[in-house]
Design a binder for these strands. Structure first.
Lengths: 335, 335
DNA sequence: TTGTAAGCGTTATCAT
DNA sequence: ATGATAACGCTTACAA
């Protein structure tokens, strides 16, 4: 039932090599022969054996996606589903496939790494949401693996795609300023993550561009989660801010809970802007003003660039920044 | 840099076969030799080449997960992330890996299917959320592919794992009855899907077990989405139900919106129970009473059973049903 | 217990 | 333009 090159060759009355040439559409095959061979291939539904093929070509047409397991079911956050969608679409369009690895799970991550990468399963890998102190990236570099990070990485050797965290945050804070808010606090993300750092930088820039002082007392760090946001807001309460930029929607939601417990009204007393534009942001009351990231495009871009790297269409580290967009709803007091 | 069996053999002063035996821990290798060889393997970080290996063993240690692309970013629904987590954990624990395919996307699904399956990439496949009329399953059967469905499938030849939709729904409806509700409507899922059918059956059973009539007028069909739930509820409004079982949390949320627009209070006027226990269910006001599915366990079980099938540890179609649990919050009027 | 050698299904080199 | 033939890195009889 499962045919081989040899079998097709026999059926077509040609040699193995000719069939191979047809399949890889090598030019030097007489058109009529080529057509005849194709016919038989289609007829019997022949498909070359991937393993045999990659044994000689050293290419598997599979790329990996490495995600820290911990971050994988983030509270109602469809980040990974969307990212994966973008990646697979691009992959498939290029005849490639996706292997998914959740790192740091029950299994020894070293084993996983070795099995998958040294085992030659992959042509390249996309790593997502790495912490700056994650040993994965240095290891990939050291091993000469072709890879790309989703999220900027402060080592000029690593390729990455990311959204424009700085500009997005600036837009958010500038919007609050335009609404007349003056004591704008922020719940920033972990400073150990680039996204956390960049969004905080955007906040600072927006303020300073208006000649306003950056005040550490108005900054509290969260971990991107709802609980983290709530706790951070509780610390901020004493400063009596009239607006808040939260570096993630989930932290914004946590902050809102803390504010309400303290009897503050949204947006009258405190205007709020988040970051992400989770589905939740449009369902909740009031609708959450937030910065929307093009997550699916980010994934598509990641795959695109990684495949360019793998196929050798581009040389050296690649850096792509995708624009974001402010989505104004009710939580910031507009209209 | 990248070693081969031959290289290790030379370093260890033994033959290729001996090294191979060590790696596959074949019994007949003298303990001291075995240890010596392992030492060298660890020292140079040797890892057998997966393609070469599977060329001869016919096993790839990779299983596929096929998901309809359309269903992949369902509104805030962390179903797939959790499912994937369960699957990968089990996979990795068995030294296997996961290849993810979103079907019916931009690419011709036939191409994808052929490439991946006939190409010999996979040892087996998990299919999730298939419609009853999806041609994928019949095709897998026809091709003799080892596979398993997440979600029951009405063909006794196919193995599946599923949650206990019928009992879960019965529990939900019985709870509403215990609260004294008597006009209990339901927004059921698509009758073209087994989950839709089963939950409707549970609703009916709960009623009839209490000697109450099943009334079609109290049934409206949705598509598991929020908008679907809202529209269905609008149709149900005229029946003035005092309670509602929605076959998904998202439909429950849509229904709540429709009810509020009609001036009904939750839970005083209409008590509500959903199904899924999305994160959203505990955030919203009032908290949504719902039936919790063990999604991650479902995934783990899927991988477990599929691998049993692949490794030949079990024979014939396998059917596993996992229990669910009623989570009581405020939307059903308890307490 | 260990080694030799024959594949596994491809691609790629070299003649023809 | 086509066909032998040698890899590719591994497993697995079969011999020793």
């Amino acid at each position: 039932m499962t045919h081989t090159l040899e079998g097709i060759a026999r059926l077509a009355g040609v040699s193995r090599s000719t069939v191979s040439r047809v399949i890889n559409n090598h030019p030097s095959v007489k058109p009529e022969v080529r057509e005849h061979v194709w016919q038989i291939i289609r007829q019997v539904g022949y498909q070359p054996h991937a393993a045999a093929r990659s044994l000689v070509t050293k290419r598997t047409h599979v790329i990996g996606l490495f995600i820290p397991r911990a971050v994988t079911a983030l509270f109602g956050d469809p980040f990974f589903p969307l990212l994966i969608r973008g990646i697979t679409d691009t992959c498939n369009a290029h005849g490639c496939h996706l292997m998914l690895s959740l790192c740091s799970g029950h299994i020894d991550p070293d084993d996983l790494y070795r099995q998958v990468l040294r085992g030659g399963y992959l042509d390249g890998v996309v790593v997502a949401s790495t912490n700056l102190d994650d040993p994965l990236v240095p290891r990939l570099i050291g091993d000469g693996v072709r890879f790309l990070s989703v999220g900027a990485y402060p080592d000029s050797r690593v390729s990455y795609v990311d959204v424009d965290n700085v500009s997005g945050t600036r837009m958010a804070v500038e919007h609050l300023l335009r609404q007349g808010r003056r004591r704008i606090a922020t719940i920033c993300g972990p400073r150990a993550m680039v996204a956390g750092r960049d969004r905080l930088a955007g906040y600072r820039q927006a303020l300073e561009a208006r000649g306003m002082a950056y005040d550490e007392a108005l900054v509290a760090e969260g971990d991107f989660s709802e609980d983290g946001g709530r706790a951070a807001m509780q610390r901020l309460l004493a400063q009596a801010p009239d607006a808040l930029f939260a570096a993630s929607d989930m932290m914004a939601i946590g902050a809102i809970k803390a504010l309400r417990e303290a009897g503050r009204r949204i947006p009258q007393d405190v205007a709020i802007v988040g970051f992400d534009d989770l589905p939740l942001a449009s369902i909740m009351e009031p609708g959450l003003t937030t910065v929307r990231q093009p997550i699916e495009r980010l994934g598509a871009m990641a795959a695109e660039v990684l495949l360019d790297l793998v196929e050798g269409r581009v040389e050296g580290p690649q850096h792509v920044i995708l624009p974001v967009q402010l989505v104004v709803r009710q939580s910031c007091g507009s209209r």
